[in-house]
Amino acid sequence: MSNQIRTKIVKEIKVNLDKCVACRACEVACSGFHANPKYSSFNPSRSRIRLVMDMLNDVYVPVRAGEYTSAECSGRHSFTIHGKEYSECSFCPTSCPARDLFKEPDSGLPLKCDMCEGEKTPLCVQVCRPGCLTYEEREEECGEEELKPGEMEVGLQSLIEKHGYQKVMDTFARLSKKG
């Protein structure tokens, strides 16, 4: 093993809440980018970034979809920032049972931001002209390389957590017969 410090590129979307005008172009762009074929359909509900919005309380928070969790939090924080109250959920990226954010509207499967692989900057940042979202890449030290489960495994894992092993296996068996 070498003693060289291992680094990784951290992709970061910075959010300046004061600049959000609630246009939700980020949602439009994200849903289009992830459509198949690309940009063939638009649907903010499929977006991996969502604007948590409570207009009359001036709460506008664009949140990026993070990991899936099968259980909701045991409690909640609420934050008061400059006199405005924000629920912890307003900042939380998790696809969780407590809310319908970051789930495919048809299947209920969790959505996760992939930083628009292949694009120079994520699409949400590209269309955010008011400058609420900006993109940065920086190098960061990291520990040992982790083995990342494949994308299919993540999907399967969440299906198993949601429906149980038996149902997933039955479905798999049925599908393979059809094939």
């Binding site: 074929p37 690309k38 940009y39 063939s40 359909s41 638009f42 649907n43 509900s45």
Partner: peptide, 14 residues
């Protein structure tokens, strides 16, 4: 609403 809206010529429109 959580349904898709489709467009006819995706790449050029985007």
């Amino acid at each position: 609403g959580t349904k898709d809206i489709n467009v006819a010529h995706p790449a050029e429109l985007w």
